[in-house]
Write a protein that binds this DNA or RNA. Sequence first.
DNA 1: ACGATATAGTTGAAGGCTAAAGTAAAATTG
DNA 2: CAATTTTACTTTAGCCTTCAACTATATCGT
Lengths: 164, 164
Amino acid sequence: MSQNGEPQWLSQSEREMWMRLVGVTFLLPGVLETQLKRDAGLSFFEYHVLAMLSEAEGRTRSMSDLARWSNSSLSRLSHVVTRLEKQGWVRREGCPEDRRATNAVLTDEGFAHLAASAPDHVEEVRTQVFDTLTPEQVAVMAEGLGRILHQVDPGAFAAPSGGC
Amino acid sequence: MSQNGEPQWLSQSEREMWMRLVGVTFLLPGVLETQLKRDAGLSFFEYHVLAMLSEAEGRTRSMSDLARWSNSSLSRLSHVVTRLEKQGWVRREGCPEDRRATNAVLTDEGFAHLAASAPDHVEEVRTQVFDTLTPEQVAVMAEGLGRILHQVDPGAFAAPSGGC
DNA sequence: ACGATATAGTTGAAGGCTAAAGTAAAATTG
DNA sequence: CAATTTTACTTTAGCCTTCAACTATATCGT
């Protein structure tokens, strides 16, 4: 704990942004998840995992890389991949070169399910987020959010593209 | 589910912002919570509930209003208030005027604990978020996040200030 | 090459969140 | 004014996440 004098409280403008950022982080995932759960039987996080896999070379990533790309701990990812495996949307494969590693592979069924779910999801994202913003706001927010994300986790989205 | 033709996919710029917003919503709460848990024994959500109470008239809000101010469902809030009550930081009081309603009141101990925790928390927020942003970015992001939040939940932060 | 350490991932238990159902009181409607 | 509906909140059960412990393999230092 710090032992300073008066801390530097947030300015009015910072406070306003902060309250809204907290609101968005609390509420937006739930809203998106409602649509996804209803239409695709997926949680927001599960969808994101499938999406990150679908964009990798060979639709394959090592668990560690997939964890980085989906902003999650390895433990959380492991549990979720187990569930996705039971649904037949993902398959685990051992890596021959490094026998500690496991690759997660998006199955054809998983890809088909993701492809079927994507249009409605994107439409929801557009409705909830981008329809309310100007292109200039999108550009500035991309920059600002990028800085925050880099501060919070310098390793986010910084992984190779294929399997192990 | 929609039955349109090709959906309107995200542009490059939108996609970039989207990935980063998802990253921030997934990771930022966890980072702040690590500090809060260590230094104050509070989850990020619990801290936020106490903070919203501390700013209300008489440090009192009805459960419904507090739920709106803390971006949560009534159910989630009810569970959390039960925990905070066990710690002695919040007290429940029935409302005489409307006997369905319950007021949550921040106790003196709760206020003291919040006051003791606030400086470190604000410093962490500053480090993780505001130190990386220019004032112009803060202003634009406040505006953009406000639009998203209003779309996601028009009722957010739109409640009276005192008890029931 | 050997021991120590780091990396990759899984698992089980504990606790928190969500959704659905339940309770009770107020407001509305015929 | 009685019946219905709405509002306010709590509770239970099930699922998900987190945390800590564990296994196995690879790498590093000497």
